[in-house]
Design a protein around this nucleic acid. Structure first.
Lengths: 95, 95
DNA sequence: GTAACCTGTAACGGATCAGGTTACAACTAA
DNA sequence: TTAGTTGTAACCTGATCCGTTACAGGTTAC
């Protein structure tokens, strides 16, 4: 409800990390210790940021792994909410 | 680094949601719209809380889906950090 | 033009995971 | 004994992460 179309973490990664440093996908992937395809897939929004990838990003860019996973979470949640649109679930918590 | 052994969300779910309401696994699973096995698997720490499950939990127990996913994230991150123990990644952020 | 990169991506395969159904053994309570 | 609850094994489907290899298209330098 809160977030309208949260950005895919890959966009943020590209705009805030790779582009400012003029890093090529190839070089960044090598530095992160993953294949070029894996990083490219994230940058183009075809894969999510896994916990392990979040740790790699945190170490490489001196950020917190949590911040990357939080972005991924917001994105996944937004997708899931669209998928479960109209789902009715009875309230279980007693007053 | 911060969290020592964060609890699996299933533990929290059992202790804070099911037990206080005397809810059986069978009844809760039915109310959530998932199979008994799926819920049991989460409660016993054999499955994680997916984004869709987080939404179901949020609706059923009047909590935020984010809170469930955050717990799952902390747990996943803790596991991933153990798996990547000793991983060295060169710092890429220019000063 | 040619060579050297960088890039996205298709096409494999492997591993893991969420989720379902069915079925069974164990336990508890009426 | 009978009924309800529970964990879980077995099996299936679909999705996702990651890897390698290979290709086509782009850019840049010579």
């Amino acid at each position: 409800m809160r977030m309208h179309n949260p950005p895919h973490p890959g966009e943020v990664l590209k705009e805030l990390c790779l582009e400012p440093l003029d890093l090529t996908v190839t070089d960044a992937a090598e530095a992160l210790g993953v294949s070029r395809k894996t990083l490219s897939s994230i940058l183009n929004g075809r894969s999510g940021v896994s916990p392990e990838m979040a740790i790699r990003l945190g170490k490489a860019f001196d950020t917190s792994a949590e911040s990357w996973l939080n972005q991924q979470m917001q994105y996944d949640l937004w997708i899931a909410e669209k998928n479960l649109q109209g789902l009715e679930i009875e309230r279980l918590n007693a007053a």
